[in-house]
Simulated assay, not measured.
Amino acid sequence: MAVVRADEHGRSAALDGLIPLTCNEIQRLFITLVVRPALGAAHRLGWSDWRRRHKARSRAGHHRLRAVPA
C-alpha cells in the first residue's frame, strides 16, 4: 500500500480535481474490491471519487479562508 500511495502522491492529482489516495483509502478500496466485493466495483470507485473531490473542495475552501487577510 505504501508503494501505491507514493506513486499516487508522485503524480499530479490537481488536474482531475481529486486529492491523492491515502493509505486508509487504498486499504478500504482493496478490501471492498478484492477481498469482500459486497457492492459493485463501480459503486465503490464512484464513492471514492466523490469523497476525494469533496475533500479537495474542502481543502481549497479552507486555504482560501486562511489566505484572506484579517
Rank of each mutant, 00 (worst) to 15 (best):
L33A: 08
W47A: 12
G61K: 03
R53Y: 05
C23D: 15
T32P: 05
C23S: 14
G61F: 00
A60Y: 08
P69D: 08
L15Q: 03
H9I: 07
P37R: 15
H9C: 13
L39D: 15
N24I: 00
V34S: 13
L39I: 09
L18R: 13
P37K: 09
R53V: 05
R64H: 13
S58Q: 14
Q27G: 05
H54N: 02
P20N: 03
R11Y: 12
G10E: 08
L21Q: 01
V4Q: 00
G61E: 07
A60W: 11
W47C: 04
H62D: 02
I19G: 02
A41M: 02
I26V: 14
G10M: 07
R51W: 12
S58C: 06
A70D: 12
H43M: 10
G40L: 10
H54C: 08
A41P: 14
V3K: 10
H9G: 06
P37Q: 14
L33Y: 11
A2G: 15
H62L: 12
L33H: 01
G61A: 10
S58P: 04
L65R: 15
S12Q: 07
A70Q: 14
P37V: 03
R11E: 15
W47V: 04
S58L: 14
H43V: 13
T22E: 01
R51K: 13
I26F: 15
A38I: 09
L29A: 09
C23V: 12
R64C: 12
P37N: 07
